[in-house]
Structures are given as structure tokens and as C-alpha cells.
Design a protein around this nucleic acid. Sequence first.
DNA 1: TATGTTTGTTAGTAATTACTTACATTAGAT
DNA 2: ATCTAATGTAAGTAATTACTAACAAACATA
Lengths: 199, 199
Amino acid sequence: MDTFKESQSTRSKILETALRLFSQRGYLGATTKEIAKEAGIAEVTLFRHFSSKERLFEEVLNTYSFLPALKGLLPEIVKIPYEDALIVIAKKFLETLNLRKEMIRIMHSEIHRYPEKIHRIYHSFMDELFKTLASYFNVMQKKGILREFDTEFGARAFLGMFFSYFNAQEFKMRKKYRNDDTDRTIKEYVNIFVRGTLK
Amino acid sequence: MDTFKESQSTRSKILETALRLFSQRGYLGATTKEIAKEAGIAEVTLFRHFSSKERLFEEVLNTYSFLPALKGLLPEIVKIPYEDALIVIAKKFLETLNLRKEMIRIMHSEIHRYPEKIHRIYHSFMDELFKTLASYFNVMQKKGILREFDTEFGARAFLGMFFSYFNAQEFKMRKKYRNDDTDRTIKEYVNIFVRGTLK
DNA sequence: TATGTTTGTTAGTAATTACTTACATTAGAT
DNA sequence: ATCTAATGTAAGTAATTACTAACAAACATA
């Protein structure tokens, strides 16, 4: 059983390292030799766990595809004021994007290699978010707090603003997140959106 | 002189093809052999025009870096109603993104290879847009049409919504743009934003 | 102790790739 | 007609890469 555990940890060491290197150098730029070296194992061990580099890549995509991000938040946020709720949602969303930063980079840079698979991952992640947020808007509309508007488009608009902000940070940086800038951005974006959707 | 013209067209054929292939397969995935073949020239000719693949890549980035997109629009849009102006801006913005679609894909997928250069290109493009739009908002605030808000953040929020929409299309598709969906999106986003910023 | 599983080491192979050299061909300019 | 610059053809090189084969070491379990 310890044998199995050892094998599992070797496997996950490879997966973690591969995620990082695919994200940093792209699929072709990350060599199996380097992945193995960085993972602290022999190259041949990599091929014993994953029959090919392609398979390893697929497993990375499967392993680190997205978490549900907002669903669990719903029960709490219906109780707090609208503007505060949006701030919580924006923060949680940006946090999730940060947690899966490497995956997002891989998806951007390898969309041409695996269009259908990456599309599926993106879809399953974003659609859940859109629908969760839209259903929150629906609740708020029924309460008479929000005016009438297409909640699905509203959700896309709201999360879209922050997704762009996140991508811009990715472009601009390597200088790490300055939280004050993030907080300011959240405040301003939410403010506009709140006024845009209140009754 | 015809000789020179011929040479120019060879050079641009190479650049065009390289843009396309770098965008489709990434820097490492696009081989000089294939670029030459697709451009209808001999591989050695490519190396006579560009001393290395790296240099070719740099020239592609330089050649197709962004156009000024909104600046020319300003004089006209100050005359038309706010909501119509935003629709025009959104359309023009999406149109520009579409024109430079390949460049955007390259920037996404090769940000790790040329971080400073790509950052510069992104910056020079987006900053001009942000500032142009912000200055439009300033004008509208002085006219008393818009409420007080930080116009730079407003501009980022507005364009961010549509940049995300554009990226989502890129992820989702290969099925080409459905204009009705785009028009609908523009309408809904603009509507929220208008209410969010009016006095 | 004996055994089976996982890993490391070493060496190698076939394919690909960026890039070069040498020489021939084309065609416009003088 | 001749010269020159741009291009093509053919052949090749050195480096890298994904992946394999063979054998030995380590280690857990029975």
C-alpha cells in the first residue's frame, strides 16, 4: 500500500511539474527531459507513468480542470446587500482565476492543439459561473431590488470585466498583484454595475 | 525598381504567412520549412530575408502591431447621443480585435517567449484605447450628462466586457461569428453601462 | 529470506529542425 | 548583350527530441 502511495506521489509530482512547465514554455517548449529533471525523477519514469507526452498533457488538462467557484457562495450572498454581494463574488472569481492561473495560460496558448477539449473545459467552467450568477440576479429581480434585464447577459458582462482585468494583469506583469489596485478595480467596476442594474 | 518591388512582395508574403502559421501553431509549432512552402518560396529565401527564425518572429510582431483604433472616432461621437456613441465604440473595438485576431492569439500563446516585447505591444494598444475612451467620458461629464466616476476605470470596465466577449468567441468557436449574437451582446452590455454611468 | 514492484542509469535510435554551402536559373537594368 | 540581384535546387550538418531497451538497485510485503 505504501508502494501505491509512493507511486501516486511520483505521479502527482510529474503532473504538477508538467502543469508548471507547459504553462511556462508551452507544450512544445516543455521537454520531457526537463519535466523529469524538475520533478526530480528519471525521464524513463515519466514514460512509465504516461505512455507519451501527449497523454501526459491530456492528464494535466483533466487533473487541473476547473473547480466549481461560486455555487457554494449563493446561500450566503442572498442575505447581504447587493453591492457587498457583488464584491464578494468578484473577489472569489479573481481568486479562482489566480488558483488556476497556469491552466488558463495553457488553455490560451494551446487552444490550437486541443480545440475541442479546451473548449469543453472552458465551457464547463464559465457556464457554471454564468448560470450561478444569473440565478442570483433572478432572485434579486424577484425581490424587486433589480430592474428587468437579461440576467445571463448581465452575468457575462460582470464576470467579463473581471476576466479582462485578470488577463491584463497576466500581460502586464511578472510584477505580482498589487492588492490595492485590485481592490480599487473591484470597487469601481462593481459600482458601475450596481447602478446599471438597480431598479 | 521592379526588382525591389518583387523583393518587397516576397518579404511580405513571408511575413503574412508567418503571421498566420505562428498564430495557428505557435512559434515552435510553425516550422521554417512550412512557412516557406505555404508562402510559395524556397526555405533558403526565407533565411536570406530574415537571418533567423527569431528575427522573423520579431519582424512579424513589429509589422502587425496594433493600429490606433478609436482616436479618429472621437470628433464624430461627441455629437451623437451617449448610448449610440457607446454602441459605435463597442462595434469599432470588436472590429479592430477581429482584424488583429492572429496577433492577439500570438500574444496570448507566446507571452512567455517575449514578455517584455508583447507587454509593450499590448500596452501601447490598450492604453491608447483606455485614454481615448476616458477622455470621451470626461467630456460627457463636463457636459453634465455623466455622473462623477473615475473615467479611466470606467473605460477599462467597458472595453474589458467586450474584450472578454471576444476572447470567449475565440475559445468557443471555429464556428464563425453570429452577428445577431454580437449585436445582442453589444446592446445588453451598453445598456447596463449606460445606466451605470448616467447622471 | 524470497519476491515483486518501482525506480534509476546508461546507452541508444529515428525523426525533426534551424540553418548553411555551393551552384544554377531567371529577369530587369544599363 | 552583359551584369547584377533575387531566387531556386540539392545536399548536408549539428543539435534536439520523444521514446525504448537492458540491467541493476532499492524497498515493501509476504
